[in-house]
Design a protein around this nucleic acid. Structure first.
Lengths: 136, 136
DNA sequence: ATCTCAATGGACTGTCAATTCCATTGAGAT
DNA sequence: ATCTCAATGGAATTGACAGTCCATTGAGAT
């Protein structure tokens, strides 16, 4: 609802993967089942995460994905950006093309506050916080 | 991007209307031009706002819409809810149906923080804050 | 009474993001 | 070398939501 589907799914798989044994590769197919995201769509998302350097992919036998960095170094913001979701992208709520601090629209101030909060949220949380205890 | 189109448009017209003479009714057609939202689509949105009691509508000659309450009593939250956008709607990011405080998913904590911030934002801002000086 | 204007409501259409499909590539295993 | 497995990449399809259309209702004005 605040996030695009790919953004939501990316956050979801990454969090799920964060709970797994980092030494073992996981296939997209298995992740798809575990996490409830259509297989091929998920593959496409994992590709973006791989290009972006967040995942490491390997083809063929015993292939699959692993997270490419220490969990505490993977910010939500990085995950979102990998799938082209930029939390602070400045799209003027008022529909104005030239809305900025110099030429603010009547909603500029309020909207900026929210955008900043969301960006700050994405910037300050990492996969290191994924709750191992939580089952759902 | 965080908001649905109807939610964004609703916030936009309402903010625009907040700057107008509250004694004069405005036609949807005129608002549509002023605010850059397709006329019939906007009408549909205004209808929701009217049902919800935020706007007052009048048909026929000299008809149109006016805001039905003092600006400081119209919270962004009310506007969003009128168009069925509930900022704190609990849709588990992890895709789990039964995710709550008792059965948290691994993203529960982080996601709750963001949802609460957004809801708090919508709850604490009103049309009274619309910036009359801002032109865009 | 009748005419015009503007909102109302619901059915219809278009568009783009979400999802699926398929052919290709590269890595291991035998 | 060859076979199988899994990722890759792009083309094709689907579906949800954005946007359009039209017939109806109710309020003034003449």
């Amino acid at each position: 609802m605040y996030l695009s589907r790919p953004a939501e799914y990316a956050l979801r798989v990454m969090t799920y993967m964060a709970l797994l044994d980092p030494a073992k590769r996981v296939r997209a197919r298995d992740l798809s089942k575990a996490v409830g995201v259509p297989e091929h769509f998920l593959s496409k998302i994992m590709r973006r995460l791989t290009e972006y350097g967040i995942l490491d992919a390997k083809k063929g036998h015993n292939g699959g994905f692993v997270i490419a960095k220490p969990l505490s170094e993977v910010r939500f913001l990085d995950i979102l950006r990998a799938v082209d979701f930029e939390p602070s992208a400045d799209h003027c709520l008022f529909g104005l093309g030239n809305c900025d601090a110099q030429h603010p629209c009547p909603l500029h101030q309020e909207w900026s506050i929210l955008k900043n909060q969301i960006e700050q949220w994405a910037r300050s949380h990492t996969l290191g916080e994924a709750d191992h205890a939580a089952v759902g």
